[in-house]
Design a binder for these strands. Sequence first.
DNA 1: TGTCTGACTTAGCAGCATGTGG
DNA 2: CCACATGCTGCTAAGTCAGACA
Length: 570
Amino acid sequence: DQWHAILVACVGMLVYILPSLCFFMPFRWEEERYTDGVKWKFLEHKGPVFAPPCDPLPSNVKFYYDGKHMKLSSSAEEVATFFAKMLDHEYTTKEVFRKNFYKDWRKEMMSEEKSKITDLNKCDFSEMSEYFKAQSEARKAMTKEDKQKIKEENERILQEYGFCIMDNHKERIANFRIEPPGLFRGRGDHPKMGMLKRRIRPEDIIVNCSKDSKHPKPPPGTKWKEVRHDNKVTWLVSWTENIQGSIKYIMLNPSSRIKGEKDWQKYETARRLKKCVEQIRAQYRDDWKSKEMRIRQRAVALYFIDKLALRAGNEKEEGETADTVGCCSLRVEHLTLHQEMDGQEYVVEFDFLGKDSIRYYNKVPVEKRVFKNLQLFMEDKEPEDDLFDRLNTSILNKHLQELMDGLTAKVFRTYNASITLQQQLNEITNSEDNVPAKILSYNRANRAVAILCNHQRAPPKTFEKSMQNLQTKIDAKKEQLADAKRELKMSKYLLEGEIEEQLMKLEVQATDREENKQIALGTSKLNYLDPRISIAWCKKFGIPIEKIYNKTQREKFAWAIDMAEKDFQF
DNA sequence: TGTCTGACTTAGCAGCATGTGG
DNA sequence: CCACATGCTGCTAAGTCAGACA
């Protein structure tokens, strides 16, 4: 009996201790994975944090209609404040924005307000706008102690709502705060800009957790829309958004097991493509000659996806979103064919808006067969007609699936991005270089990928100034070096060497920044480049990983940091 | 075969925290 | 120690793609 009791105690202890041990298991991505679509066995969380309620404006902050003061009902006032807060943005002057805003604002008005307010142009939001500006100034001017208090409160909320338990692991939640209400501003020329994005209430929320967990409680006096226990999905909370009617989710942070494993899998698929890409290329080149038009279109589209890293290009509902395209949805008007251009034959000029309404502009010499096919596809078509009228992403991906298990259009982007980084690093890293110069090489390799993937950014507002500042520093350093050379001999070499190194560092920094003016490196680093390539490169050349990845990125790529040896090749 | 929906990844940017250099 | 520039982080829009359904 005594032994039995001890045994029971030991088993109890184990059950208690094991989960916490798992927290510290370094290779948790190597734990057993579920099959048949099960994503977890246990999921417990505290639910979302709702947007803070809207405070009524103080009575001295007035709204004027047609020059006359008008007291707004609380619902009309809230929506008016959304507009007032955006007054400094150029888009509040856009016709579409104003029209959509006005229409949705009227829905929130009382009937008297509706009859009084008939013209948005007669609305004066300037006092509200000034009030919010003053508020944000006041926030900036807060005492250290007050700022500290806010910080502590945020930390408390993070600790309470920012984590969940998924299968014995405490995991960080990515977006546990519900999006606050406001005016929708899509990207680019969005037909719905200015529409009211409504406030999300507990009654809109679907909670997902395991049956045997402690279910999150809705705020007092409210109910969830639904509590479900679906372990075939990874989300914790969802709701339907009112602009596009799409579903939004609360999910885990990229550092979580579930995201990390998926990320790893993505790169493993891309590496499998590496093994058969030449064969696939041979096949699509052959298909350019097919007697079937749909095969030729598929083959030319795939060539673009492979060569230019274009996105697949799903169809979009007209009038619901900005007019953007990807490969399969290219229209005749997006290409110009040049038999000859700048001394090159068969040049295709691309000019279209892609994801996020980022412009893709490129002049590409292509194979004669591709060129001839394009002429054929464009024959007798209007500019607004589809280039590939016998093709869509579904057809293309079904074809790709037959060529390789798990192959889809986007795998080519991942593959080409990662292989480019690997090749560039192999090619341009000089082992004789010092650390800053090696990092310049790394950034250049990263840049080659960003250019391939068309990851652009608006030049930073302070770009010119910051370049100037840097140049001033460089000039000062040169001066200093000249001085040092004239100085007494004693410490000369030591000092000179040090200054030269500093100068070199500054110059490298200037080059890097200049080259990076309109290029965004972050997206490719985070989503397209197999982190094991970078980590292996760091190990091989003695570069601290912190120089390449910041804290968040190191957390996201923890799986790769554990895994990659210095000889890893993509 | 096409359409719709749901789940998930990819994207640029604003605002703020942080680190740096004078 | 402060001002300022920079880098990071959060935010949320906008894609991809599979599978259900007609």
